[in-house]
Amino acid sequence: MNIKEGEIFGLLGPNGAGKTTTMNMLCTILNPTSGYAKIGGYDVFKEREEVRRSIGIVFQDPCIDNFLTGRENLAFHATMYHMKKREREYRISEVLDLLDLKGKENIKIDDCPAGVQRRFEVARGFMNHPKVLFLDEPTIGLDIVARRKLWEYIRRLNDSEGMTIILTTHYIEEADYLCDRVAVIDNGRIKVIDTPDNLKNSIGKDVISLEIENGRRKEFLNVLTGLDWIEKVEAYNNSFELSVSGGDERVPELVNLADENGFTISSIDSHKPTLEDTFIHYVGKTIRESEGSMKEERKARRARRRGRR
């Protein structure tokens, strides 16, 4: 897979798909068991120093010193990259501006709300003018408002500094909103790479999702397969995803059909394909179903709490 300069690229996949592992390998933290990768022409495994100098990272778990202020954290990071004092001060005020963190830089990280802490981590990530910025689940554990805000900032970074941004996420909306291109991965393999729009169009038709009440899914499937306007059926327990031609007017048709055959539809909904539908199409289960996500969120929250001690 190739990631272009200046784009926002998303790695989308269920938990355990290998998003963070991919990220860690690209960031020189983990050694790959096979294969290779290059960032800005540098080999990730043979030219670590050069790679490290040209990237910035925001990790999935909070990785910021709680006892220091935001400014101190930024300054710490900058000196690790050998930034001289004047350059450092200039850059700090630049990134504070960009992420609207002015006025918060002298508060201990511990005393900042989670959204602001995260923003400081993002700010730190691009202190050193990286060519590529990695964001591993940047909005995990944030409330909706903080998440939206962070999205705006990520966009702004990409616009104003022109840096390539690679992010992993299991929030579909996030990938849809932010990414120029998305790779859907599962079990360590790339299922598909394309723009969110193309991905949505690739499964083509309108989508009807419905749920039946009693558990005779096999029989219901048989009823559905007889219809020529249904292109594709995917069933999970009692819920079905149909790709159809026609859209809304098919809803009453389906309800009647179910009635005639003695099935009860408990819910039905027709919509244009979303990135989530695409995801289900390629990965075969809804992202929310993978129980890992709650666990991970809890873990992140726990880590934040612990960091507060």
Partner: peptide, 14 residues
């Protein structure tokens, strides 16, 4: 390591 700060240090070119 517990609070993740070690990672932040180890990915710098130092």
């Amino acid at each position: 390591k517990e609070f993740g700060f070690l990672k932040e240090v180890l990915v710098t070119p130092v």
